[in-house]
Design a protein around this nucleic acid. Structure first.
Lengths: 205, 205
DNA sequence: TATAGTACTTAACAGTGTTAAGTACTTCGT
DNA sequence: ACGAAGTACTTAACACTGTTAAGTACTATA
């Protein structure tokens, strides 16, 4: 009985591992239940024993992605840093995550939610942790006088969406070929920071 | 013969009209060749007489979208306006277009190009006109001393991608429910403009 | 009137997600 | 020890998808 349960979870894990591997190596739109099954060594319908449907399997992968980005961020920001430093680290970490993990980024942020099952509420809360950390950072910067902010939550979403736009533009190859990618990224980050520190940097006043 | 040619183009137009209508009313991912054919009154394979494949048909619709947004922009900006006015108009027009035409926006900016046939070079040039106009506006603002810009082309892409991020965030319902949509949009636009006018507005210097 | 070309259709292929039904096998209660 | 129940899986099937090959009327031309 105990052995059975372990074996059961073995197939589940195998399906998840295969899916993750295939997602990264072949891309989201080559991810099919039958292909996963073939690779995982079971029939396509067996997947449904462990995941309600394809979306549920995808949600599990999306979860992994959010766990990745959360631990990346957590490992890089620090209460000891000045808010402006944490802000820049947040921006660059997010961008780097997107560019390093385009397939994860796609399922996490590019899949049209309208076409998918609703992302479970509990997972959703986890998914929004990074933007909460960003809002906290902004609030702290505002309190300590580094930033000029009206509403940290709104501002955090503005910044987050701006970074998202930059990442997708790069991933989709929509940046003019004349533009150096690093220059573009630096410009985006600079733009974000400028928007918060207006009139606060040394300008001879 | 002349009559035939007209009739021929009639079916092509009917397919295109049906596709556009179905795209807007049912969404991109409910757009199938068989459904279009059924609605247009022909067989699915007849579509292939006028469009190389589904992507080519989609490209035609995407083209329409870029024509729409281009004429929207052209109708709203003016050489007589101050660059800052044109900039804000550009931003708000683009955002409004995205929110008013989510299905067009999806096929124009959200479809992963990797999964599609290459967008024809000539069309691509037309598609990039809005961002060129934006770059021109920035350059003009820089020349006349309104903006502080390093590279107008880079800056235009930064702004464009930032707006894109904002639009997709709204369309994908990724904006926190506590945030008022108009507040968010205003914040985004303000953020864009701030990034260009740093140290130039009246600040008591 | 036969030929060539136009404008279309039907049938089929290979793939998709998903469900219903069936099959071994294992464990449990009597 | 034996039938019942439950587990872990599979096969077959449905209703779709984009796309191609082959076939069918019809029409204009030589």
């Amino acid at each position: 009985m105990a052995v059975q349960l372990i074996k059961k979870q073995d197939l589940r894990r195998s399906i998840l591992d295969t899916s993750r591997h295939m997602l990264v190596s072949e891309g989201f739109n080559h991810l099919s239940m039958r292909k996963i099954a073939r690779e995982a060594g079971c029939s396509a319908t067996s997947i449904y024993l462990y995941f309600r449907n394809k979306d549920a399997l995808l949600h599990a992968l999306i979860d992994e992605g959010f766990e990745m980005i959360f631990s990346l961020i957590k490992g890089k920001i620090s209460e000891d840093n000045r808010p402006a430093v944490n802000l820049e680290v947040l921006c660059r970490t997010f961008i780097k995550f997107g560019l390093d993990n385009p397939e994860y980024y796609e399922i996490m942020f590019l899949l049209h939610p309208k076409n998918m099952d609703r992302y479970p509420a509990e997972n959703f809360r986890r998914a929004t942790r990074p933007v909460s950390i960003l809002a906290d950072t902004l609030l702290q910067g505002e309190k300590t006088g580094y930033f000029t902010i009206q509403d940290p939550v709104v501002e955090a979403h503005v910044i987050w969406s701006s970074l998202h736009g930059a990442i997708t533009a790069i991933l989709a190859n929509r940046i003019d070929v004349r533009i150096n990618q690093q220059d573009f990224i630096d410009s985006v980050v600079q733009h974000v920071i400028r928007g918060l520190t207006r009139g606060r940097e040394k300008n001879g006043c």
